[in-house]
Design a binder for these strands. Structure first.
Lengths: 254, 254
DNA sequence: TGCACCATCCAGGATTGTTGGATATCTTGG
DNA sequence: CCAAGATATCCAACAATCCTGGATGGTGCA
Protein backbone atom coordinates (compact mmCIF):
# COMPACT_ATOMS: atom_id res chain seq x y z
CA UNK A 1 0.00 0.00 0.00
CA UNK A 2 1.16 3.53 -0.68
CA UNK A 3 3.57 4.56 -3.42
CA UNK A 4 6.10 1.97 -2.27
CA UNK A 5 9.14 1.76 -4.52
CA UNK A 6 11.52 -0.53 -2.75
CA UNK A 7 12.40 -0.83 0.88
CA UNK A 8 14.64 2.23 0.81
CA UNK A 9 12.80 4.36 3.26
CA UNK A 10 11.22 3.52 6.58
CA UNK A 11 7.49 4.04 6.78
CA UNK A 12 7.18 4.29 10.52
CA UNK A 13 9.85 6.95 10.64
CA UNK A 14 8.03 8.97 8.04
CA UNK A 15 4.84 8.64 9.99
CA UNK A 16 6.63 9.99 13.04
CA UNK A 17 7.82 12.92 10.91
CA UNK A 18 4.23 13.57 9.93
CA UNK A 19 3.22 13.77 13.56
CA UNK A 20 6.06 16.15 14.33
CA UNK A 21 5.19 18.29 11.33
CA UNK A 22 1.54 18.39 12.33
CA UNK A 23 2.38 19.38 15.88
CA UNK A 24 4.69 21.98 14.50
CA UNK A 25 2.06 23.81 12.56
CA UNK A 26 -0.74 23.36 15.04
CA UNK A 27 1.22 24.02 18.22
CA UNK A 28 -0.44 21.39 20.34
CA UNK A 29 -3.10 18.74 19.90
CA UNK A 30 -4.69 15.82 21.70
CA UNK A 31 -4.06 12.25 20.67
CA UNK A 32 -7.44 11.89 19.01
CA UNK A 33 -7.10 15.13 17.13
CA UNK A 34 -3.81 13.91 15.70
CA UNK A 35 -5.38 10.61 14.76
CA UNK A 36 -8.24 12.31 12.96
CA UNK A 37 -6.03 14.79 11.20
CA UNK A 38 -3.73 12.05 9.96
CA UNK A 39 -6.48 9.56 9.24
CA UNK A 40 -4.87 6.90 11.38
CA UNK A 41 -6.42 4.87 14.22
CA UNK A 42 -5.91 6.29 17.69
CA UNK A 43 -4.27 3.09 18.83
CA UNK A 44 -1.58 3.59 16.23
CA UNK A 45 -1.01 7.22 17.09
CA UNK A 46 -0.85 6.24 20.72
CA UNK A 47 2.18 4.03 20.26
CA UNK A 48 3.93 6.70 18.25
CA UNK A 49 3.31 9.41 20.79
CA UNK A 50 4.47 7.18 23.59
CA UNK A 51 7.67 6.40 21.77
CA UNK A 52 8.26 10.03 20.87
CA UNK A 53 7.61 11.00 24.44
CA UNK A 54 9.97 8.37 25.79
CA UNK A 55 12.59 9.68 23.40
CA UNK A 56 11.95 13.17 24.74
CA UNK A 57 10.81 14.66 21.44
CA UNK A 58 7.27 15.45 22.47
CA UNK A 59 5.81 16.42 25.82
CA UNK A 60 2.30 16.05 27.02
CA UNK A 61 0.69 18.44 29.43
CA UNK A 62 -2.93 18.13 30.27
CA UNK A 63 -3.56 15.80 27.30
CA UNK A 64 -2.13 18.31 24.88
CA UNK A 65 0.83 16.97 22.98
CA UNK A 66 3.48 19.32 21.61
CA UNK A 67 7.01 19.08 20.28
CA UNK A 68 9.43 19.38 23.13
CA UNK A 69 12.29 21.76 23.75
CA UNK A 70 14.66 18.93 22.98
CA UNK A 71 14.53 20.23 19.44
CA UNK A 72 15.92 23.51 20.70
CA UNK A 73 18.58 21.66 22.63
CA UNK A 74 19.73 19.61 19.66
CA UNK A 75 19.45 22.58 17.34
CA UNK A 76 21.54 24.66 19.71
CA UNK A 77 24.23 22.01 19.72
CA UNK A 78 24.23 21.59 15.97
CA UNK A 79 24.71 25.32 15.65
CA UNK A 80 27.41 25.36 18.27
CA UNK A 81 29.31 22.72 16.34
CA UNK A 82 29.50 24.94 13.29
CA UNK A 83 32.89 26.67 13.28
CA UNK A 84 31.44 29.63 11.49
CA UNK A 85 28.87 30.20 14.19
CA UNK A 86 31.42 30.26 16.96
CA UNK A 87 33.57 32.65 14.99
CA UNK A 88 30.83 34.97 13.78
CA UNK A 89 28.39 35.16 16.70
CA UNK A 90 30.38 37.68 18.77
CA UNK A 91 30.94 39.84 15.70
CA UNK A 92 27.19 40.12 15.18
CA UNK A 93 26.94 41.93 18.48
CA UNK A 94 29.57 44.42 17.31
CA UNK A 95 27.75 45.06 14.08
CA UNK A 96 24.42 45.53 15.82
CA UNK A 97 26.07 47.90 18.27
CA UNK A 98 27.70 50.02 15.59
CA UNK A 99 24.80 50.20 13.15
CA UNK A 100 21.91 50.11 15.61
CA UNK A 101 20.15 47.73 13.22
CA UNK A 102 19.63 43.99 13.25
CA UNK A 103 22.70 42.00 12.27
CA UNK A 104 22.21 38.50 10.89
CA UNK A 105 24.21 35.39 10.04
CA UNK A 106 23.01 32.84 7.50
CA UNK A 107 24.16 29.56 6.03
CA UNK A 108 22.78 27.39 3.27
CA UNK A 109 21.21 24.03 3.98
CA UNK A 110 19.10 21.91 1.62
CA UNK A 111 18.81 24.79 -0.81
CA UNK A 112 17.48 27.23 1.74
CA UNK A 113 18.93 30.08 3.75
CA UNK A 114 19.01 29.30 7.45
CA UNK A 115 19.30 32.14 9.92
CA UNK A 116 21.62 30.76 12.56
CA UNK A 117 22.33 33.98 14.40
CA UNK A 118 21.00 37.49 14.80
CA UNK A 119 21.45 40.39 17.15
CA UNK A 120 19.33 43.49 17.50
CA UNK A 121 20.85 46.95 17.90
CA UNK A 122 19.06 49.86 19.54
CA UNK A 123 16.45 50.99 17.07
CA UNK A 124 16.02 47.59 15.45
CA UNK A 125 12.45 46.76 14.47
CA UNK A 126 12.44 44.20 17.26
CA UNK A 127 9.81 41.70 16.38
CA UNK A 128 11.15 38.45 17.73
CA UNK A 129 14.14 36.99 15.97
CA UNK A 130 13.10 33.90 14.02
CA UNK A 131 16.18 31.89 14.84
CA UNK A 132 16.63 28.78 12.72
CA UNK A 133 14.24 30.08 10.09
CA UNK A 134 14.48 28.51 6.62
CA UNK A 135 13.78 30.79 3.69
CA UNK A 136 14.03 30.77 -0.10
CA UNK A 137 17.53 31.76 -1.09
CA UNK A 138 16.43 34.36 -3.64
CA UNK A 139 14.22 36.21 -1.19
CA UNK A 140 16.90 37.65 1.06
CA UNK A 141 20.23 39.39 0.83
CA UNK A 142 21.87 36.67 2.88
CA UNK A 143 20.32 34.04 0.64
CA UNK A 144 21.43 35.75 -2.56
CA UNK A 145 25.00 35.94 -1.27
CA UNK A 146 24.92 32.24 -0.54
CA UNK A 147 23.31 31.34 -3.84
CA UNK A 148 25.73 33.53 -5.82
CA UNK A 149 28.71 31.60 -4.55
CA UNK A 150 27.37 28.06 -4.64
CA UNK A 151 28.99 25.73 -7.21
CA UNK A 152 27.41 26.14 -10.69
CA UNK A 153 25.71 22.78 -10.55
CA UNK A 154 23.89 23.36 -7.30
CA UNK A 155 23.11 26.96 -8.09
CA UNK A 156 21.47 26.09 -11.37
CA UNK A 157 19.45 23.24 -9.94
CA UNK A 158 18.11 25.51 -7.24
CA UNK A 159 17.21 28.23 -9.71
CA UNK A 160 15.56 25.78 -12.04
CA UNK A 161 13.94 23.27 -9.72
CA UNK A 162 11.42 25.21 -7.73
CA UNK A 163 10.00 27.98 -9.83
CA UNK A 164 11.23 30.86 -7.64
CA UNK A 165 8.18 31.63 -5.51
CA UNK A 166 7.28 35.24 -4.89
CA UNK A 167 7.19 37.03 -1.53
CA UNK A 168 6.61 40.68 -2.50
CA UNK A 169 6.29 42.74 -5.67
CA UNK A 170 10.04 43.15 -5.78
CA UNK A 171 10.97 39.51 -5.48
CA UNK A 172 13.14 38.43 -8.38
CA UNK A 173 11.23 35.55 -9.92
CA UNK A 174 12.70 35.54 -13.39
CA UNK A 175 15.59 33.06 -13.72
CA UNK A 176 17.41 35.31 -16.20
CA UNK A 177 17.25 38.37 -14.01
CA UNK A 178 18.26 36.34 -11.00
CA UNK A 179 21.35 35.03 -12.79
CA UNK A 180 22.34 38.60 -13.66
CA UNK A 181 21.76 39.73 -10.11
CA UNK A 182 23.91 36.91 -8.76
CA UNK A 183 26.67 37.73 -11.18
CA UNK A 184 26.58 41.37 -10.06
CA UNK A 185 26.77 40.20 -6.47
CA UNK A 186 29.86 38.16 -7.25
CA UNK A 187 31.51 41.12 -8.96
CA UNK A 188 30.72 43.77 -6.39
CA UNK A 189 31.19 41.55 -3.38
CA UNK A 190 27.90 42.38 -1.68
CA UNK A 191 24.15 41.94 -2.07
CA UNK A 192 21.27 44.31 -1.47
CA UNK A 193 17.77 43.13 -0.63
CA UNK A 194 15.30 45.84 -1.54
CA UNK A 195 11.82 44.96 -0.27
CA UNK A 196 12.15 41.62 -2.01
CA UNK A 197 10.94 39.70 0.95
CA UNK A 198 9.04 42.16 3.10
CA UNK A 199 7.63 45.51 2.18
CA UNK A 200 9.51 48.37 3.75
CA UNK A 201 12.56 46.29 4.62
CA UNK A 202 16.04 46.50 3.11
CA UNK A 203 19.26 44.73 3.86
CA UNK A 204 22.92 44.68 2.83
CA UNK A 205 24.92 41.51 3.00
CA UNK A 206 28.35 40.13 2.24
CA UNK A 207 29.55 36.55 1.74
CA UNK A 208 32.17 34.80 3.85
CA UNK A 209 34.36 32.70 1.58
CA UNK A 210 37.29 30.35 2.08
CA UNK A 211 40.56 31.26 0.37
CA UNK A 212 39.49 28.85 -2.37
CA UNK A 213 36.29 30.78 -2.94
CA UNK A 214 33.99 28.24 -1.32
CA UNK A 215 31.00 29.83 0.38
CA UNK A 216 30.65 29.28 4.12
CA UNK A 217 28.11 31.82 5.27
CA UNK A 218 26.91 35.38 4.84
CA UNK A 219 26.47 38.27 7.24
CA UNK A 220 24.39 41.39 6.91
CA UNK A 221 22.25 44.12 8.43
CA UNK A 222 18.51 44.64 7.99
CA UNK A 223 16.16 47.51 8.69
CA UNK A 224 13.44 49.85 7.47
CA UNK A 225 13.88 51.44 4.04
CA UNK A 226 14.04 54.97 5.37
CA UNK A 227 17.15 54.16 7.36
CA UNK A 228 18.80 52.35 4.46
CA UNK A 229 19.62 55.09 1.98
CA UNK A 230 22.65 55.24 -0.33
CA UNK A 231 24.83 56.75 2.34
CA UNK A 232 24.12 54.15 5.00
CA UNK A 233 24.45 51.38 2.45
CA UNK A 234 28.00 52.26 1.48
CA UNK A 235 28.87 52.75 5.12
CA UNK A 236 27.48 49.36 6.08
CA UNK A 237 29.14 47.63 3.16
CA UNK A 238 32.62 48.57 4.23
CA UNK A 239 31.81 47.74 7.83
CA UNK A 240 30.54 44.32 6.81
CA UNK A 241 33.55 43.65 4.65
CA UNK A 242 35.84 44.50 7.53
CA UNK A 243 33.91 42.23 9.81
CA UNK A 244 33.81 39.44 7.26
CA UNK A 245 37.59 39.55 7.17
CA UNK A 246 37.77 39.51 10.92
CA UNK A 247 35.64 36.40 10.93
CA UNK A 248 37.71 34.70 8.25
CA UNK A 249 40.83 35.23 10.32
CA UNK A 250 39.17 33.57 13.28
CA UNK A 251 38.02 30.59 11.24
CA UNK A 252 40.26 27.58 10.91
CA UNK A 253 40.55 26.00 7.51
CA UNK A 254 41.78 22.56 8.32
CA UNK B 1 14.42 -9.65 20.88
CA UNK B 2 15.57 -7.05 23.38
CA UNK B 3 13.74 -6.17 26.59
CA UNK B 4 10.40 -6.26 24.75
CA UNK B 5 7.40 -5.74 26.98
CA UNK B 6 4.47 -5.41 24.62
CA UNK B 7 4.15 -3.57 21.38
CA UNK B 8 3.89 -0.20 23.10
CA UNK B 9 6.92 1.42 21.61
CA UNK B 10 8.22 1.43 18.08
CA UNK B 11 11.61 -0.11 17.62
CA UNK B 12 12.54 1.58 14.38
CA UNK B 13 11.78 4.99 15.85
CA UNK B 14 14.01 4.26 18.80
CA UNK B 15 16.75 3.19 16.47
CA UNK B 16 16.42 6.49 14.66
CA UNK B 17 16.72 8.25 18.00
CA UNK B 18 19.91 6.34 18.66
CA UNK B 19 21.37 7.57 15.41
CA UNK B 20 20.40 11.14 16.20
CA UNK B 21 21.86 10.86 19.68
CA UNK B 22 25.06 9.41 18.32
CA UNK B 23 25.41 12.17 15.75
CA UNK B 24 24.69 14.65 18.46
CA UNK B 25 27.58 13.65 20.64
CA UNK B 26 30.02 12.95 17.86
CA UNK B 27 29.20 15.90 15.63
CA UNK B 28 29.47 14.09 12.35
CA UNK B 29 30.20 10.57 11.19
CA UNK B 30 30.22 8.45 8.04
CA UNK B 31 27.64 5.77 7.40
CA UNK B 32 30.02 2.95 8.23
CA UNK B 33 31.18 4.59 11.42
CA UNK B 34 27.60 4.83 12.57
CA UNK B 35 26.98 1.21 11.68
CA UNK B 36 30.00 0.07 13.64
CA UNK B 37 29.27 2.24 16.63
CA UNK B 38 25.70 0.98 16.81
CA UNK B 39 26.53 -2.61 15.93
CA UNK B 40 24.05 -2.66 13.07
CA UNK B 41 24.66 -3.67 9.42
CA UNK B 42 25.51 -0.83 7.07
CA UNK B 43 22.58 -1.67 4.86
CA UNK B 44 20.24 -1.05 7.75
CA UNK B 45 21.86 2.22 8.72
CA UNK B 46 21.72 3.24 5.11
CA UNK B 47 17.93 3.09 4.96
CA UNK B 48 17.65 5.03 8.17
CA UNK B 49 19.98 7.77 7.07
CA UNK B 50 18.20 8.06 3.75
CA UNK B 51 14.87 8.41 5.48
CA UNK B 52 16.20 10.90 7.98
CA UNK B 53 17.78 12.86 5.17
CA UNK B 54 14.59 12.86 3.14
CA UNK B 55 12.78 14.13 6.22
CA UNK B 56 15.37 16.86 6.52
CA UNK B 57 16.66 15.84 9.92
CA UNK B 58 20.18 14.94 8.87
CA UNK B 59 22.38 16.36 6.15
CA UNK B 60 25.28 14.75 4.42
CA UNK B 61 28.23 16.70 3.17
CA UNK B 62 31.22 14.92 1.80
CA UNK B 63 30.06 11.59 3.25
CA UNK B 64 29.85 13.03 6.71
CA UNK B 65 26.40 12.80 8.20
CA UNK B 66 25.27 15.29 10.84
CA UNK B 67 22.04 16.42 12.40
CA UNK B 68 20.59 19.23 10.36
CA UNK B 69 19.56 22.75 11.28
CA UNK B 70 15.96 21.65 11.02
CA UNK B 71 16.28 20.91 14.71
CA UNK B 72 17.06 24.56 15.26
CA UNK B 73 14.11 25.55 13.10
CA UNK B 74 11.65 23.37 14.97
CA UNK B 75 13.17 24.31 18.30
CA UNK B 76 12.86 27.97 17.45
CA UNK B 77 9.21 27.53 16.62
CA UNK B 78 8.45 25.56 19.74
CA UNK B 79 10.01 28.33 21.75
CA UNK B 80 8.16 30.98 19.83
CA UNK B 81 4.88 29.25 20.61
CA UNK B 82 5.49 29.59 24.33
CA UNK B 83 3.58 32.64 25.56
CA UNK B 84 6.12 33.17 28.28
CA UNK B 85 8.96 33.42 25.79
CA UNK B 86 7.27 36.06 23.72
CA UNK B 87 6.47 38.06 26.83
CA UNK B 88 9.83 37.71 28.56
CA UNK B 89 12.38 37.83 25.73
CA UNK B 90 12.37 41.63 25.30
CA UNK B 91 12.62 42.10 29.05
CA UNK B 92 15.82 40.05 29.13
CA UNK B 93 17.47 42.68 27.00
CA UNK B 94 16.47 45.36 29.50
CA UNK B 95 17.84 43.39 32.40
CA UNK B 96 21.11 42.71 30.62
CA UNK B 97 21.37 46.37 29.74
CA UNK B 98 20.77 47.58 33.28
CA UNK B 99 22.93 45.06 35.11
CA UNK B 100 25.63 44.54 32.52
CA UNK B 101 25.49 40.83 33.32
CA UNK B 102 23.91 37.88 31.55
CA UNK B 103 20.14 37.68 31.95
CA UNK B 104 18.47 34.30 31.54
CA UNK B 105 15.02 32.77 31.16
CA UNK B 106 14.28 29.16 32.08
CA UNK B 107 11.36 26.78 32.07
CA UNK B 108 10.94 23.26 33.35
CA UNK B 109 10.55 20.32 30.99
CA UNK B 110 10.85 16.61 31.84
CA UNK B 111 12.27 17.43 35.22
CA UNK B 112 15.04 19.59 33.89
CA UNK B 113 15.67 23.30 33.61
CA UNK B 114 15.70 24.45 29.99
CA UNK B 115 17.35 27.74 29.14
CA UNK B 116 15.06 29.18 26.49
CA UNK B 117 16.47 32.70 26.40
CA UNK B 118 19.51 34.67 27.45
CA UNK B 119 21.02 38.02 26.74
CA UNK B 120 24.51 39.26 27.53
CA UNK B 121 25.15 42.71 28.93
CA UNK B 122 28.46 44.57 28.56
CA UNK B 123 30.85 42.89 30.92
CA UNK B 124 29.17 39.49 30.73
CA UNK B 125 31.55 36.55 30.72
CA UNK B 126 30.58 35.96 27.12
CA UNK B 127 31.31 32.37 26.40
CA UNK B 128 28.63 31.36 23.94
CA UNK B 129 25.11 31.14 25.25
CA UNK B 130 24.04 27.50 25.43
CA UNK B 131 20.52 28.08 24.24
CA UNK B 132 18.18 25.15 24.78
CA UNK B 133 20.48 23.64 27.36
CA UNK B 134 18.95 21.10 29.75
CA UNK B 135 20.32 21.03 33.28
CA UNK B 136 19.55 19.45 36.63
CA UNK B 137 17.02 21.62 38.43
CA UNK B 138 18.95 21.74 41.70
CA UNK B 139 22.15 22.98 40.06
CA UNK B 140 21.01 26.44 39.10
CA UNK B 141 19.13 29.38 40.53
CA UNK B 142 16.60 29.23 37.72
CA UNK B 143 16.17 25.52 38.32
CA UNK B 144 15.71 25.90 42.05
CA UNK B 145 13.02 28.55 41.49
CA UNK B 146 11.21 26.18 39.17
CA UNK B 147 11.58 23.19 41.46
CA UNK B 148 10.48 25.18 44.51
CA UNK B 149 7.14 25.95 42.94
CA UNK B 150 6.35 22.66 41.25
CA UNK B 151 3.39 20.71 42.68
CA UNK B 152 4.42 18.59 45.74
CA UNK B 153 4.06 15.34 43.87
CA UNK B 154 6.34 16.23 40.99
CA UNK B 155 8.80 18.04 43.20
CA UNK B 156 9.23 15.08 45.48
CA UNK B 157 9.58 12.58 42.67
CA UNK B 158 12.31 14.71 41.11
CA UNK B 159 14.16 15.07 44.40
CA UNK B 160 13.90 11.39 45.14
CA UNK B 161 14.23 9.75 41.75
CA UNK B 162 17.66 10.66 40.50
CA UNK B 163 20.01 10.96 43.42
CA UNK B 164 20.82 14.66 42.95
CA UNK B 165 24.10 14.52 41.00
CA UNK B 166 26.87 16.88 41.97
CA UNK B 167 28.39 19.63 39.81
CA UNK B 168 30.68 21.47 42.21
CA UNK B 169 31.60 21.37 45.89
CA UNK B 170 28.69 23.63 46.69
CA UNK B 171 25.99 21.66 44.90
CA UNK B 172 23.19 20.75 47.27
CA UNK B 173 23.02 16.98 47.05
CA UNK B 174 21.28 16.22 50.33
CA UNK B 175 17.50 15.86 49.90
CA UNK B 176 16.83 17.31 53.33
CA UNK B 177 18.94 20.40 52.77
CA UNK B 178 17.44 20.84 49.33
CA UNK B 179 13.91 20.79 50.74
CA UNK B 180 14.88 23.47 53.25
CA UNK B 181 16.47 25.56 50.53
CA UNK B 182 13.37 25.30 48.39
CA UNK B 183 11.15 26.28 51.26
CA UNK B 184 13.36 29.33 51.89
CA UNK B 185 13.07 30.22 48.22
CA UNK B 186 9.29 30.08 48.42
CA UNK B 187 9.27 32.31 51.48
CA UNK B 188 11.73 34.91 50.29
CA UNK B 189 10.59 34.92 46.70
CA UNK B 190 14.01 34.51 45.12
CA UNK B 191 16.84 32.01 44.76
CA UNK B 192 20.59 32.43 44.92
CA UNK B 193 22.99 30.09 43.16
CA UNK B 194 26.36 30.28 44.86
CA UNK B 195 28.95 28.33 42.88
CA UNK B 196 26.64 25.36 42.96
CA UNK B 197 27.05 24.66 39.31
CA UNK B 198 30.28 26.33 38.27
CA UNK B 199 33.11 27.58 40.40
CA UNK B 200 33.31 31.34 40.53
CA UNK B 201 29.77 31.88 39.25
CA UNK B 202 26.78 33.21 41.16
CA UNK B 203 23.25 34.03 40.14
CA UNK B 204 20.02 35.50 41.52
CA UNK B 205 16.69 34.38 40.20
CA UNK B 206 12.99 34.91 40.73
CA UNK B 207 10.00 32.76 39.73
CA UNK B 208 7.19 33.86 37.44
CA UNK B 209 3.92 32.52 38.79
CA UNK B 210 0.30 32.64 37.69
CA UNK B 211 -2.18 34.29 40.05
CA UNK B 212 -2.98 30.77 41.26
CA UNK B 213 0.63 30.17 42.18
CA UNK B 214 1.41 27.84 39.31
CA UNK B 215 5.00 28.12 38.09
CA UNK B 216 5.54 29.21 34.50
CA UNK B 217 9.17 30.17 34.29
CA UNK B 218 12.02 31.88 36.09
CA UNK B 219 14.29 34.79 35.21
CA UNK B 220 17.63 35.76 36.63
CA UNK B 221 21.11 37.24 36.22
CA UNK B 222 24.43 35.41 36.34
CA UNK B 223 28.02 36.50 36.68
CA UNK B 224 31.35 36.16 38.46
CA UNK B 225 31.35 36.00 42.26
CA UNK B 226 33.28 39.22 42.70
CA UNK B 227 30.56 41.19 41.00
CA UNK B 228 27.79 39.48 42.97
CA UNK B 229 28.24 40.76 46.53
CA UNK B 230 25.46 41.47 49.03
CA UNK B 231 24.85 44.91 47.64
CA UNK B 232 24.42 43.87 44.03
CA UNK B 233 22.31 40.93 45.06
CA UNK B 234 19.69 43.03 46.80
CA UNK B 235 19.74 45.49 43.93
CA UNK B 236 19.23 42.74 41.37
CA UNK B 237 16.50 41.10 43.39
CA UNK B 238 14.25 44.12 43.35
CA UNK B 239 15.00 44.71 39.68
CA UNK B 240 14.08 41.12 38.87
CA UNK B 241 10.90 41.29 40.89
CA UNK B 242 9.86 44.42 39.03
CA UNK B 243 10.59 42.78 35.74
CA UNK B 244 8.79 39.59 36.72
CA UNK B 245 5.70 41.66 37.38
CA UNK B 246 6.07 43.42 34.08
CA UNK B 247 6.18 40.04 32.37
CA UNK B 248 3.16 38.75 34.26
CA UNK B 249 1.15 41.73 33.11
CA UNK B 250 2.06 40.97 29.52
CA UNK B 251 1.13 37.31 29.83
CA UNK B 252 -2.39 36.23 29.07
CA UNK B 253 -3.96 33.70 31.38
CA UNK B 254 -6.73 32.34 29.27
C1' DT C 1 -24.06 10.05 39.71
C1' DG C 2 -24.12 9.08 34.90
C1' DC C 3 -22.70 10.11 30.38
C1' DA C 4 -19.51 11.15 26.82
C1' DC C 5 -15.11 11.51 25.40
C1' DC C 6 -10.52 10.18 25.35
C1' DA C 7 -6.48 7.37 26.33
C1' DT C 8 -4.69 2.79 26.98
C1' DC C 9 -4.25 -2.15 26.42
C1' DC C 10 -4.23 -6.46 23.74
C1' DA C 11 -3.29 -10.30 20.43
C1' DG C 12 -3.65 -12.06 15.83
C1' DG C 13 -2.53 -11.24 10.98
C1' DA C 14 0.06 -9.01 7.37
C1' DT C 15 2.93 -5.56 5.98
C1' DT C 16 7.37 -3.76 6.44
C1' DG C 17 11.73 -3.54 8.27
C1' DT C 18 15.88 -6.29 8.29
C1' DT C 19 19.83 -8.43 6.44
C1' DG C 20 23.66 -10.76 3.72
C1' DG C 21 25.55 -10.38 -0.26
C1' DA C 22 26.23 -8.45 -4.92
C1' DT C 23 27.12 -4.14 -7.38
C1' DA C 24 28.37 0.58 -7.98
C1' DT C 25 31.02 4.44 -6.57
C1' DC C 26 34.63 6.86 -4.55
C1' DT C 27 39.50 7.25 -2.80
C1' DT C 28 44.20 6.26 -2.40
C1' DG C 29 48.67 4.80 -3.58
C1' DG C 30 51.75 3.11 -6.90
C1' DC D 1 46.54 6.58 -15.21
C1' DC D 2 45.30 2.24 -13.38
C1' DA D 3 44.51 -1.03 -9.67
C1' DA D 4 43.09 -2.10 -5.19
C1' DG D 5 40.70 -1.19 -1.15
C1' DA D 6 37.20 0.94 1.19
C1' DT D 7 32.71 2.73 1.35
C1' DA D 8 28.00 3.43 -0.13
C1' DT D 9 23.94 1.66 -2.54
C1' DC D 10 20.78 -1.77 -4.29
C1' DC D 11 18.06 -6.06 -3.97
C1' DA D 12 14.89 -9.87 -2.78
C1' DA D 13 13.32 -13.17 0.52
C1' DC D 14 12.21 -14.10 5.32
C1' DA D 15 10.30 -13.26 9.66
C1' DA D 16 9.95 -9.97 13.07
C1' DT D 17 7.48 -5.87 13.99
C1' DC D 18 4.15 -2.72 13.30
C1' DC D 19 -0.84 -2.11 12.66
C1' DT D 20 -5.44 -2.29 13.97
C1' DG D 21 -10.38 -3.18 15.76
C1' DG D 22 -12.39 -3.64 19.67
C1' DA D 23 -12.66 -3.93 24.66
C1' DT D 24 -11.19 -1.66 29.02
C1' DG D 25 -9.97 1.98 32.02
C1' DG D 26 -9.76 6.80 33.11
C1' DT D 27 -11.29 11.74 33.29
C1' DG D 28 -14.19 15.70 33.24
C1' DC D 29 -18.56 17.79 32.77
C1' DA D 30 -23.53 18.27 33.34
Amino acid sequence: MGQSSTGNSIGSLERAFDIIALLRERGSLTLTEIAEELGVPTSTVHVYLKTLEKGGFVTVEDRQYRNSLKFLEIGGQVRQQLDIYRAAAPVLTDIAGITGERAGLGVEESGKRVLIGAEDGRGAVSDNIPIGEFTELHWTGLGKCLLAHLPHERRESIITDNDLPRATENTITDPGRLREELSTIRERGFAVEDEERRDGIRSVDVPILTPEGEIIAAIGVTGPVNRFGAEQLSQYISLLQDKANEIKLKTVYY
